[in-house]
Amino acid sequence: MSVRNRIRMRYKKRDIVVALSLAISMLALAMVLNMGGLGILPPRTLRSLARSIVINTYNPWNTTLTSYSLNAVSAIIWDYRGIDTIFETSVLMAAVTGVAIVLRESHKGRKPGGQGMSIIVKSSTKIVMLLTIIGSLALAVHGHLTPGGGFQAGSAIGATLSLVLVALSLQFIHRIGIDKDTLLKIRYTVLAMILAVALVPLISLVLGYSYAYILQNQVREGSYFSMPSKFFTTPLAGTVFVFNILETITVASAITYIVLTVATYEGKTEE
């Protein structure tokens, strides 16, 4: 009898019944939609839009309709819909600027100290940090051949640096040389470099070599300008490769800056 008194359920019966009925009604709605009960659904075979995307992203027989990258997702993000990615990068820049303005420190007196967690945690975190940085560099450099790309590698590095902030202490971060001002400077410099790479085809237009467009990757109809497209024998899409590497650095510094500001903010608290 005493065992039954100790293991008591922390939820009433009403909560579990409501949760189960919510799950069953969602599943029933999904099944009804799947069988076409609520209208016209897209067909299950390959649609014409998907077919044209697969044909146009790697097409070595027709050199005016291709970008030489085997990863279709990277080619769509950086080459065919490049202006959407520029707007998404500016959204992240607005978020970083908002955090920098709202969470300004009211006083600079910060007491030093801190030792971090125990020695087992520190050793395993150092191994994890090293392996993650190597894996992220592999993701960034091979972004046009395998699944991966710039944003994925950058967010992995940023997440690892915030894990180092928790396991080892804040003193370790300052001892490496990572400061909040340094991170902001790195981020804005690399953003300016991305804009410069996007405007490189205009040089060809100004010098009179050939007609060119902004964000142009390979040869198009009516213009002979093209970024490098092969690295001895492997395909290397020109702007996709350069944008992946630059995006890694800028996203990593943005995420580390946000976590560092939120964790070390000292303001007035109301009791």
Binding site: Q115, V121, T146, V166
Partner: peptide
Amino acid sequence: IAFPMIFIALWAYVLDLYVSKYLEFRDIGE
């Protein structure tokens, strides 16, 4: 497609760190 396997095996222990840091220490980042 099996490339994310590496990262999820590396980061499986992260929630333990956060819960123990909340319950034991005075400040995140100490």
